[in-house]
Computed example of a mutant assay.
Amino acid sequence: MTHDSMDQEPRNAFRPQPPSLRNKRVLVVEDDFFVAEETVRDFEDFGAEVVGPVSSLTLAFDVVLNGQAIDGAVLDINLLGERVFPLVDVLRRRGVPCVFATGYDRWTVPTDYQSVPLLQKPVVTAEVARALFG
Rank of each mutant, 00 (worst) to 15 (best):
H3M: 14
A13E: 11
A13T: 09
P18R: 06
L21I: 05
R22L: 14
R22H: 14
V26K: 02
V28L: 03
V28G: 04
V28H: 06
D31W: 01
D31I: 02
E38H: 02
T39A: 14
T39F: 10
V40L: 13
R41S: 13
R41H: 13
D42H: 14
D42R: 12
D45I: 01
F46A: 04
F46Y: 15
G47T: 09
A48S: 11
E49H: 12
V50P: 03
V54S: 08
S56R: 01
A60W: 01
V63P: 00
A69L: 12
I70P: 02
A73P: 01
N78P: 00
L80E: 13
G81R: 07
G81T: 10
E82Y: 01
E82G: 02
V84Q: 07
V84N: 00
D89M: 07
D89W: 01
P97T: 10
P97Y: 10
V99R: 00
F100A: 04
A101K: 05
A101Q: 07
T102V: 09
Y104V: 11
D105P: 03
W107Q: 15
P110T: 11
T111F: 11
D112N: 13
Y113D: 01
P117K: 01
V124K: 12
V124E: 15
T125V: 04
A126T: 08
V128T: 08
R130H: 13
R130E: 14
A131Y: 10
L132H: 02
F133P: 09
G134W: 06
G134Y: 06
G134S: 11
